[in-house]
Amino acid sequence: MASVKDLKTRIASVTSTQKITKAMQMVAAAKLRRARDAAESARPYASRMAAVIANLAAGISGGGAPRMLVGTGSQARELVVVATSDKGLAGGFNGSIVRAAREYIAGQIAAGRQVSVLTVGRKARDQLRRLYGDLYLATPEAGVPSLAKAQEIADIVTARFEAGEVDVVTLYYNQFKSVVSQVPTRQQLIPAQIAGSAPTIDLKGAGYEYEPDETAILAALLPRNLTTQILAAMLENQAGFFASQMAAMDNATRNAGEMIASLKLIMNRTRQAQITKELIEIISGAEAL
């Protein structure tokens, strides 16, 4: 049985762990607020962009359509972009994205498709490199989401697509539903998905005029749309990560509290047992005299 001194040391160690998890929880909560604001203020741009592209795509006729919109006509080679965070200590946040992506990749390989993997964020790299070392492309770190960062990733994707190495590009990330719920989400980047729900704009009989022509505008917009979608995913990930970390650290703090309580109980019992033992020794010593 552990001595009172040993128990005291353990309680001190758990208490300092609890202090750390408590601090991490508060930091995550503060960062979550900022990350959420960033994700929310990026939404108008993304939704307008989607609406405009849907509008353009509806008007464009077969032949001249850019390949980013209509695809290469094949689905044989797929690039899967898996976006996670750089850091851990956030419960199942990264694990759930990676698991969803892994299942999908396994399914695609089983279906005879050629798959390559691009990870964003250190955690996805660590977890996927061992499994798919030979399929592996590049691994930019997630860092702080910014337009420049999203552009960098979009450039890698675009380069592969333009070089004719891939036909389909899919993105995996965690969608930020609420503080308690982040959903691993699959999104097809290329060929561009046209939001079916985008409201068609009522032109009141007038025809659209384009400068330069429709195809040129669409060709200029699609790469930007790619960047926007990647940025949106990174922002959602960021917000989800802090939410998940906050929940995980809240749990850890609570567990540490329970542990301290039970250790204290054991310590007090041990101390009391020792006092009782000493008393018995004194009394029986006195009786013997």
Partner: peptide, 19 residues
């Protein structure tokens, strides 16, 4: 500043899209 020349937009402008 449109890519093919500056333009001004007032209310009731015809549908128009440009880079």
């Amino acid at each position: 500043p449109g890519s093919e020349g500056n333009f001004g937009v007032l209310a009731g402008h015809a549908p128009f899209m440009t880079t």
